[in-house]
Design a binder for these strands. Structure first.
Length: 785
RNA sequence: GCGGAUAUGGCGGAAUUGGCAGACGCACUAGACUUAGGAUCUAGCGCCGCAAGGUGUGGAGGUUCGAGUCCUCUUAUCCGCACCA
């Protein structure tokens, strides 16, 4: 059976690449949450095969990662063995579900033949200057003992384990995803993603356009750069605020008369966790740097400088110009410190609040730009700043570079060597893969060092460049590394010369349809787009974007309307459901349970409903009579169903596709018989959802070959309407009757039929008809007073 | 605060370009059959009403022959981001 699902090697015929996110093979096994996306794309893959496409529908294992390592720490079992066991279990469960994966292309991110190329891509990034090591404040999970990317911190806790996250300074490998920020935005136009996914990515990248402006210090010795989106309000900048960590404070601390007060505030701010810092607080705190002022570059007024923790070192320049009249936070700060509020955009009431409306305002009190609109003033002021050499147009992004190293064992070793003389040196390509060494204890050091740090025989090496003693990098890559390019490997999974051959990539890329969870929108989805763009730039892949179409499924909640979790005891195990009801019932139920994109609640009664439907499909074989054509009574019904099931699957409406099949089955029972031809059509339509049942009945009927290899049924648009049609008749928009007329009845004939209706005549008693509207074969509305 | 979405029976959910609101399933009610079952079959099932009929898609307006669908305002819930300058 499996060979049926293998993608053809010959690159013949139109291709279709359907992809689902490969699972992390956890010890808990397959979760019902996996079933929704996997079943949905299995349905699509099966339908595409029946439509004649050469389909690639692969599966693999995203097997590096923390839970396995933590399990190894607890039990002493090697992560490699844990992974092997878990994969075997997952594979058994996926097979049980009848998914038509092409197992001949299975990949595993922990396989050296795979991670060889993950390391190779990293080296290319390094050579291109996109990987760099930096002493950087990182998010450190106190429970996993590991540094996290910003994307992995959710609500101040670790995205994976929920542990407390603190700030730590650590020398980390970073990837310059920010260099691709603009293209990650603009190229969203090239792809078909849901609006919510695009919006999330745009939001995450957080582009803002404005100007960088230089403020001279009153001491004449230096200047402070700020970023602003409102250069039009520069005349209203009546003070400045620096982040407590701003380096200038350190430099000029001697000139600040209240230095001790300033240092006390700095200490206070440093104690707050990053999460507390970014929480919107009610009041604004801060300290003025006494005796240390700046000069507004256009009004030339001397203005005070403050430090406050509402200014973040990590965004912009770590310093702002404050325009209390036209920024809510500055307004609040100015009120708290009794600072003057200057109106430079008229239209609001500064007694009450800052005026931030950029549409309606007109510039005032600003000699260079008075009378202009906000937009005009922005442009003119920016030009002025550039002219005088004190500022320029500037774009800022919220996106930060990607913290790429982890102080853990179970990940891809970073293939670099530190040499005192040569710096960081990549290991030669011929030495890839750099194997993860065997280890007996996986405990990370309390100081947060990688377990590989305990292996001098491994990390002591020689410099590939100069031959002197050198040290291997002991950090490993994050779990996101392996999944950032895995879709490429499926096209050519055992290639030993490149990640995948150009020929295979030319034929199979892009992924035509990629379904995955919303939780990966700003993580995996963004990271893999970044890597793909880089690989495109260096000529490895033929396209600038990896995925043509992305869809996202909703979560499945437990029967108690709560998120499934072991502690709540509301977890549904697919094995149990299959045992009790069978694979096809589970597949059908999961597709029928609700809108694919929305959250759905598990209902065992619903599962029974799906079972009842399939039992009735089986029992309908009793009604089959010989015949090559459609049963007359059911012909229009079949043409409609073929159209609806086909169309619905394409737009993720699996629930209504199944409902249509249920309705047709009800009508078959009402008709009391159907031809063999009809039954065959029905089984073909059902086969993507319930493949086992469909094949069995297919064989019972003596049909040739397999249902899954038969041609997807075709419909005739002219036959979707029966010979007679029913026209609803409304009077003043209210339904009064329905009349039945021939499909090709003329307007006159319809009118006659309507006026023969007793219900219509009764309803019109004592009224005057003023208008009659007939919308061809749809509705007849009489307007009467 | 910004961005995205959602709101329809007892429940999950349907409803092409504005055109029969509640498809399909579940639950429930009544009945049939019986090997008494978590089985199957038949009928019913938005709300009010015996009925005729009225009424009904979070709320208030509007456009239209006709609005769950379009427009304006509003309320609630969920998700993402958030002192981002």
């Amino acid at each position: 059976m499996e060979a049926l699902y293998a993608a053809r090697q010959d690159s013949s015929g139109p291709k279709y690449y359907a992809l689902v996110e490969f699972p992390y093979p956890s010890g808990q096994g397959l979760h019902v949450g996996h079933l929704r996306p996997y079943t949905a794309l299995d349905v699509i893959a099966r339908k595409r095969r029946m439509e004649g496409y050469n389909v690639l529908f692969p599966m693999g294992w995203d097997a590096f990662g923390l839970p396995t390592e933590n399990y190894a720490i607890q039990t002493g079992i090697h992560p490699k063995d844990v992974t092997r066991t878990n994969i075997a279990n997952f594979k058994k469960q996926l097979s049980m579900m009848g998914y038509s994966f092409d197992w001949g292309r299975e990949i595993d991110t922990t396989d050296p033949n795979y991670y060889k190329w993950t390391q190779w891509i990293f080296l290319k990034l390094f050579e291109a200057g996109l990987a760099y090591k930096k002493e950087t404040p990182i998010n450190f999970c106190t429970s996993c003992k590991v540094g996290l990317a910003n994307e992995e911190v959710v609500g101040g806790v670790c995205e994976r384990c929920g542990g407390k996250v603190v700030r730590r300074t650590k020398n980390q490998w970073m990837l310059k995803i920010t260099e691709y920020a603009e293209r990650l935005i603009t190229d969203l136009d090239m792809v078909n993603y849901p609006e919510r996914v695009k919006a999330s990515q745009l939001n995450w990248i957080g582009k803002s356009t404005g100007a960088q402006v230089s403020f001279s210090l009153a001491n004449g010795q230096d200047s402070i750069d700020v970023f602003t989106t409102r250069p039009d309000t520069l005349y209203g900048a009546s003070y400045m605020v620096l982040s407590p960590e701003h380096p200038l404070i350190e430099k000029y601390i001697g000139q600040i008369s209240n230095a001790s007060q300033v240092e006390a505030y700095q200490l206070e701010a440093s104690k707050k966790s990053d999460f507390e810092r970014s929480e919107v607080s009610d009041g604004k705190t801060g300290v003025r740097l006494e005796g240390f002022d700046a000069i507004n570059p256009v009004s030339h007024e001397t203005i005070p400088i403050f430090i406050s923790d509402y200014v973040l070192m990590s965004y912009g320049t770590g310093a702002i110009m404050a325009v209390p009249g036209h920024d809510d936070r500055d307004y609040e700060f100015a009120k708290a410190f009794n600072l003057p509020i200057i109106e430079v955009v008229s239209g609001g009431n500064l007694e009450e609040s800052a005026f931030t409306d950029t549409e309606k305002g007109v510039i005032v009190n600003s000699p260079l730009i008075n009378g202009l609109s906000v937009d005009e003033a922005k442009a003119k002021m920016t030009a002025h700043l550039e002219d005088k050499g004190i500022g320029q147009a500037k774009v800022n992004y919220r996106l930060r570079d990607w913290v790429f190293s982890r102080q853990r064992y179970w990940g891809e070793p970073i293939p670099l060597v530190w040499c005192e003389a040569c710096g960081w040196v990549p290991i030669p390509e011929a030495e890839l893969p750099l194997l993860l060494p065997e280890l007996s204890s996986f405990q990370p050091g309390e100081d947060g060092e990688s377990p590989l740090h305990n292996l001098p025989e491994w990390f002591n090496t020689t410099c590939p460049k100069c031959g002197h003693p050198a040290l291997r990098e002991t950090d490993t890559m994050p779990q996101w590394a392996g999944s950032s390019w895995y879709f490429l490997r499926y096209t050519d999974p055992s290639n030993n010369e490149s990640p995948a051959s150009p020929k295979a990539l030319d034929y199979w890329m892009n992924v035509d349809w990629y379904n995955g969870g919303m939780e990966h929108t700003t993580l995996h989805l963004l990271y893999s787009r970044f890597w793909h763009k880089f690989l495109f730039d260096i000529g490895v892949v033929p396209t600038p974007e990896p995925y043509d179409k992305r869809t996202s499924h909703g979560m499945i909640l437990g029967p108690d309307n709560q998120k499934m979790s072991k502690s709540r005891g509301n977890v549904i195990n697919p094995d149990d459901v299959v045992k009790a009801y069978g694979t096809d019932t589970l597949r059908t139920y999961v597709m029928f349970m609700g809108d694919f994109e929305k959250t759905a609640i598990w209902s065992e009664d619903g599962v029974r409903g799906a079972k009842r439907f399939l039992d009735r499909v089986w029992a309908a074989s009793e009604l089959v009579v010989a015949g090559n054509g459609y049963s007359k009574k059911l012909e229009a019904n079949f043409h409609n169903t073929i159209k609806k099931v086909g169309d619905d699957c394409e737009v993720l409406k699996f629930n209504t596709a199944i409902a249509t099949l249920m309705k047709l089955l009800n009508d078959i029972y009402e008709a009391k018989s159907l031809t063999q031809h009809d039954y065959k059509t029905f089984l073909a339509l059902l086969s993507p959802f319930a493949p086992h049942l469909a094949e069995e009945l297919w064989m019972d009927q003596g049909f040739k070959g397999y249902a899954c290899e038969s041609a997807w049924p075709q419909y005739d648009p002219d036959k979707t309407l029966g010979d007679d049609i029913e026209i609803p008749v409304q009077i003043n928009g209210k339904l009064r009757d329905k009349v039945i007329v021939a499909k090709d009845a003329t307007d006159e004939e319809v009118k006659l039929a309507v006026w023969e209706s007793e219900a219509v005549i009764r309803a019109l008693e004592g009224k005057t008809v003023t208008n009659e509207i007939y919308i061809g074969s749809k509705i007849y509305n009489i307007v009467a007073k």
